[in-house]
Amino acid sequence: LKKGSQVEALFSYEATQPEDLEFQEGDIILVLSKVNEEWLEGECKGKVGIFPKVFVEDC
């Protein structure tokens, strides 16, 4: 996944840490960066945070 690409949430993700990005199933997320193999940083609904890659798929 490249910076600036968009992904769609397959499942809702509930934030458990302040840096987490919370979203609902079906939301479109703009990928800002790759944190590591399992986590991405993205923006959704004006909020920025990190989230697990397994919760999303390429649009």
Rank of each mutant, 00 (worst) to 15 (best):
Q6R: 12
I50C: 07
V56H: 03
E14Y: 10
V7D: 00
S12F: 07
V35D: 04
F23W: 01
G4C: 07
I28L: 09
S5R: 11
V7I: 01
K45L: 04
L32V: 09
F23V: 04
E38G: 10
I50R: 11
E14R: 13
G26H: 07
L40E: 02
D20G: 11
V35T: 01
C59Y: 10
V54L: 07
T16M: 10
C44R: 08
D20N: 02
K3A: 06
L21Q: 04
E37W: 09
G42F: 05
Q6N: 01
I28F: 06
W39A: 03
I50G: 08
Q24Y: 06
E37F: 02
F11D: 01
V56I: 01
N36Q: 06
G49E: 03
K47S: 10
F55G: 06
F23P: 01
S33L: 04
F55M: 13
E57M: 06
W39T: 02
E41K: 14
E38L: 03
G49R: 02
E38D: 12
A9I: 05
G46S: 00
P52D: 06
E8A: 14
G26I: 01
F51C: 09
E14S: 11
E14T: 14
V56M: 01
E19A: 10
E43Q: 12
E43Y: 11
E8Y: 14
Q6Y: 15
K3C: 15
W39L: 01
E41D: 12
N36V: 03
I50T: 05
V35L: 11
V54N: 12
S33M: 03
S33H: 04
V56D: 07
K53W: 01
S12L: 11
K2F: 13
K34Y: 04
L40P: 12
E57T: 15
V48K: 14
E22H: 10
E57K: 14
E19C: 11
K47Q: 01
I28S: 13
I50D: 08
A15E: 00
V56E: 07
I50W: 00
F51H: 10
I29G: 08
I29V: 01
F11W: 07
P18T: 04
E25P: 01
L1M: 13
A15V: 01
V56K: 03
L40R: 10
V54A: 15
W39E: 09
G46Q: 01
E57R: 15
L32T: 14
P18D: 14
F55W: 05
K45I: 00
S12D: 11
T16C: 07
K3V: 12
C59W: 15
W39P: 04
V48C: 07
Y13T: 03
Q6W: 14
E25G: 10
K3T: 11
E8W: 15
I29N: 11
K53Y: 02
F55Q: 01
L21M: 05
Q24T: 09
G26D: 03
K47M: 00
Q6H: 15
G4P: 10
S12A: 11
L30V: 12
K34M: 08
E25C: 09
Y13Q: 14
Q24E: 15
E14K: 14
S12N: 10
K47D: 01
L30A: 09
E57V: 10
L1Y: 15
E22K: 06
K47T: 09
E8S: 13
E22Y: 04
I50E: 04
E8N: 15
L1T: 03
P18L: 01
L30E: 13
W39H: 00
Y13F: 07
E14C: 09
E38S: 02
Q6T: 14
Q24D: 14
E57Q: 15
L10D: 00
D58Y: 04
L32M: 05
F55N: 05
E41G: 10
G4T: 04
A15K: 08
Y13K: 08
S33G: 14
K2Y: 11
A15F: 04
G42M: 00
S5T: 12
V56G: 02
Y13P: 10
L21Y: 02
V35Q: 08
L10R: 13
G4W: 01
Q6P: 00
D20S: 05
Q17K: 15
C59K: 06
K47Y: 02
Y13W: 06
S33F: 09
V31I: 14
W39K: 03
L40M: 12
V54M: 14
C44M: 13
I50M: 03
F11S: 08
F11N: 13
N36T: 01
G49K: 12
L30M: 13
P52W: 00
P52G: 10
Y13C: 07
L32F: 11
P52K: 04
S33D: 15
V7R: 08
L21V: 10
V35F: 09
K34L: 07
V31G: 12
W39I: 11
S5H: 09
K45R: 12
Q6S: 03
S12W: 04
S33N: 13
V7S: 09
S12R: 08
I29F: 02
I29S: 07
V48P: 00
V35P: 10
L21E: 00
V31M: 05
V7G: 03
W39M: 13
G46C: 06
G42R: 00
V48M: 00
G42A: 11
E38K: 03
K34F: 06
E38N: 11
N36R: 00
V31Y: 06
E19V: 06
D58T: 13
N36A: 12
K2W: 11
L21A: 04
V54P: 06
P18M: 09
Y13D: 03
L10V: 04
A15D: 02
E14L: 09
E38T: 05
E41A: 07
K3Q: 03
S33T: 09
G26V: 07
E8M: 15
L30C: 11
E37I: 06
G46T: 00
Q17I: 07
E38V: 06
I28H: 13
V56P: 00
Q6M: 12
V31D: 12
E43K: 09
F11I: 02
K2H: 14
P18K: 04
L21S: 05
D27G: 05
G49T: 00
L40A: 02
Q17C: 13
E25I: 03
E22V: 07
V31T: 06
L1K: 05
F51P: 00
L32N: 14
F55K: 04
F11R: 13
E43M: 12
V35R: 09
E37V: 13
Q17W: 02
K53C: 01
K2S: 08
G42D: 01
C44G: 07
K47G: 05
E22Q: 15
K3G: 02
Q24I: 03
E19G: 15
E22R: 07
F11L: 08
Q6I: 11
G26E: 06
E38P: 05
D20M: 13
E38Y: 09
E22S: 14
V54C: 14
G42T: 01
E37S: 05
E8T: 13
S33V: 11
K45G: 04
D58M: 10
P52I: 02
E57L: 05
V31H: 07
G42P: 07
D27S: 03
Q24V: 09
V48R: 15
E19N: 14
Y13I: 06
V35G: 04
L10F: 05
Y13E: 05
A15I: 08
E25F: 00
Y13S: 06
G46V: 04
K47I: 03
K34T: 15
A9P: 13
A9Y: 00
Y13M: 14
L21D: 08
G4E: 01
K34R: 06
Q17M: 09
G42N: 06
E25S: 09
C44W: 10
E19M: 06
V54Y: 12
K3P: 14
K53D: 04
I28Y: 05
I50P: 13
Q17D: 03
G49L: 07
F23K: 12
K45F: 03
G26Q: 00
K2T: 15
E38H: 08
E41Q: 14
N36L: 00
Q24K: 13
C59N: 09
E14D: 12
K2Q: 15
F23M: 11
D58C: 14
I28W: 12
Q6C: 08
V31A: 03
A9D: 00
F55Y: 13
F23Y: 05
T16P: 01
I50H: 07
D27L: 09
E37H: 08
E25A: 14
N36K: 13
L32C: 07
W39Y: 08
K53Q: 01
D20I: 07
K47P: 01
V31W: 04
L21H: 06
